[in-house]
Simulated assay, not measured.
Amino acid sequence: MSRTVFCRKFQQELEGLDRPPYPGARGQDLFDNISKKAWQEWMNYQTMLINERQLNMMDLTARTYLTEQMDKFFKGEETDAVEGYVPPEERGSE
């Protein structure tokens, strides 16, 4: 049976991650409080941010920016928009 966590983003019990996504305290916090569903949504959004803003992941400033966006994303706060992106729930039936 898979483990569940009370997901910080969705505010409900959902399937948890299989392992911490990062080493250290940040990884453990994500492991304990973020669901697989929320993590997958973040990974998709992060990819769009990297591509749209042409971020160089070797640059500390870019990594810091993504960490800040990730924290906002999981807290349900407003994150930077990706131009042209419309979340599925807002697209309606096309």
Rank of each mutant, 00 (worst) to 15 (best):
C7P: 00
M58R: 15
F10E: 08
Y22C: 07
N56P: 05
R3Q: 14
R53M: 14
E78A: 12
Y45V: 00
Q54H: 12
V86I: 10
E52M: 11
M70F: 10
E94S: 12
L17I: 00
L30C: 04
C7W: 03
L66S: 01
Q28C: 10
D71V: 07
S93M: 11
F73E: 06
A81M: 13
E77S: 08
E83M: 14
F10G: 01
T4W: 07
L17N: 03
K72E: 11
C7Y: 03
E68D: 15
K9D: 00
P87T: 09
N44A: 15
G24M: 07
G92I: 04
K37H: 09
F74A: 00
K9G: 01
E52F: 13
N33Q: 14
E41R: 06
V5K: 02
G27W: 03
W42V: 00
L17Q: 08
T4C: 08
T61D: 14
P87E: 14
Q46M: 10
L60R: 14
N44R: 11
L17A: 00
T79H: 04
L60D: 15
E52W: 14
T67L: 12
A25K: 11
V86M: 12
P21S: 01
T79M: 06
V86W: 07
Q40V: 08
N51C: 12
L66V: 01
C7S: 09
P87L: 13
G84E: 06
S2N: 13
R3D: 14
R8I: 05
M43G: 02
T79E: 05
R26G: 03
P23C: 11
E78F: 10
D18A: 12
W39K: 01
D29V: 10
N44D: 15
E68K: 12
D59V: 00
C7G: 03
K75H: 09
R8F: 07
Q28G: 05
K36E: 13
R53S: 04
G24Q: 08
D80N: 11
E15I: 06
D80R: 08
Y45I: 06
L30P: 02
I34R: 01
F6V: 04
I34T: 01
Q54V: 03
E94N: 06
E89T: 02
A25E: 10
P21Y: 09
F31L: 04
R3S: 08
G27N: 06
E13K: 10
L49E: 05
Q11F: 05
N51A: 15
Q54F: 09
D59S: 06
Y85C: 05
E15V: 06
G27T: 04
L14S: 02
I34F: 03
E89V: 08
G24D: 05
I50F: 13
K36R: 11
Q11H: 09
R91T: 02
K36G: 09
Q69N: 08
A25D: 12
L17F: 05
K72S: 08
Q40W: 08
F10H: 13
